[in-house]
Amino acid sequence: MELLNSIFIKPFQDMVAAPDFLLQVLWEGLVAGVLYALIALGFVLIYKSSRIFNFAQGIMVVFAALTLVGLHEKGIPALLAVPLTLVVMLILAIAIERVVLRPLVNQPDIILFMATIGITLFLVGFGELIFGGENKVMITEQLGIPTGSFTFEPFGGFVSIEQKDLTAVIGAVVLVAALLVFLNKSKMGRAIRALGDDHQAALSVGISLSTIWILVWFIAGIIALATGIVWGARAGVSFALEVIAYKALPVLMLGGLESVLGAIIGGLAIGILEKLFEIYWGQPLMGGNTETWFAFVFALIVLLFRPQGLFGEKIIERV
């Protein structure tokens, strides 16, 4: 009885009793969710256009952030370092297409998946070799991101919203909007979607596979840089950031591997729910740190009811 009470009644009583704290938790969850959604978006783009499950997306975030900070440390002004980092990401995209993807066209999915894990290891070693393994500070102020915080006093309580988090949310919304416009309106964007629908048909109307793959990996690189800046501003830049890539996986499952919308909604849902669970159930009942697995278990339960995720394409199987 005591246990049931602490599971089903007390958390909600706590929420009602301190609505300002609940708002704060929701905001924190939302910001985390936006970042998960961004990483998941990088996955979805690559999966849609090439059916590659790109495990390296997480390390690309770290690599982009490290390159940016590293370039700045070499004395390059911050606003110049950003385009230079983008150039590095473009070179990376071209190299990956040339060296890894092109020879592996038409191999089974699992082989390509393993190859992206190989890329992950390579980039970890390469990044540490060049930039060192220690934790670095993101150049938040140099990039012109405000660092103060707003405070509100709703319900007679106290809620604080950091300006860099707000910038992150706005930046993410702008980025996603731009991406959607690009995918739906531009010629290249349509080519990407065509390739996602049917490889052979797309090739036969003259869409270049290798160009599109480079483009898609480059866009994933841009998203990685944006995520890296925002997450780095919150937690510092180090290879520990890699773990957030794992967080994007349940987001993908929840949203469906092919759905841009699913990635966004899944990211927000998981960001908010895991924070709520951690604060109201995890810490009082299970000794905390439930964030490492909650998203996976939640996605697993949803998948049991919808095996293709919430927004994924319906899986049709024929013999």
Binding site: V99, V100, P103, L104, Q107, I111, M114, A115, I117, G118, I119, T120, L121, F122, L123, V124, G125, F126, E128, L129, G133
Partner: peptide, 18 residues
């Protein structure tokens, strides 16, 4: 050496797969 190690293992995996 440690960093090179990780890098070479990654490259070897890709090489073998190719």
């Amino acid at each position: 050496v440690e960093h090179l190690n990780v890098m070479i293992v990654g490259a070897t995996i890709i090489l073998f797969l190719v």
